[in-house]
Amino acid sequence: MSEIQLEIDGKQVKAKEGDTVLTAAEKAGMKIPKLCHNEKLIPYGGCRLCIVEVESRGASKLVVSCVYPVEENIVVKTRSEKINRIRKTILELLLAHAPASPSLQDLAHEYGADKNRFEKEASFCVHCGLCVRYCAEVKQLNALGFINRGVNKEICFIPHIAEKECSSCMECFPLCPTSYLQAAYVLVKGLTFTPDLTPLNINK
């Protein structure tokens, strides 16, 4: 594999062909905020928080670093006034859906995002897709997926698969930035699973 030379925040960085700007930056010890990224999963580009400025052949553009492959001689800026402003707005929009999410609050503190800027829309899910993709790509169980689209898009467990597989796995739970996944699981469990009626559990 050929090596690619690029500049990130004024530092010369070497990366492998096919790497994304995000992985190259992280290998060089730089921190880019992200919500929907996970090394085990295929890049998704869902949260847009890892947005950076890329300058190639004299022109500068904003790209999402987790899905942007490295190119020879590009100049990447991971922080600038413009990027900070965009990240702040993205955070404020996400906070309107999940104001109490710990990972969002940490980032909001860093970027000065105001969680009350936009009217609250308590959907709790921020559509990072971590649970859906983890179940499909790593576990290959497909116990949950997305349904509907746009503002109505939500995660949805498939009851008969979830009943068989989820209680012994639950590996996606810690991935969720908002705890909405756990709530959705409790709901599907309460509404669709066959109750456990063995004598020990009957009085619980």
Partner: peptide, 12 residues
């Protein structure tokens, strides 16, 4: 095709 994908498309 996983049923999750079929549902995603059918509801999309």
């Amino acid at each position: 095709v996983p049923i999750t994908r079929t549902m995603h498309i059918a509801s999309f």
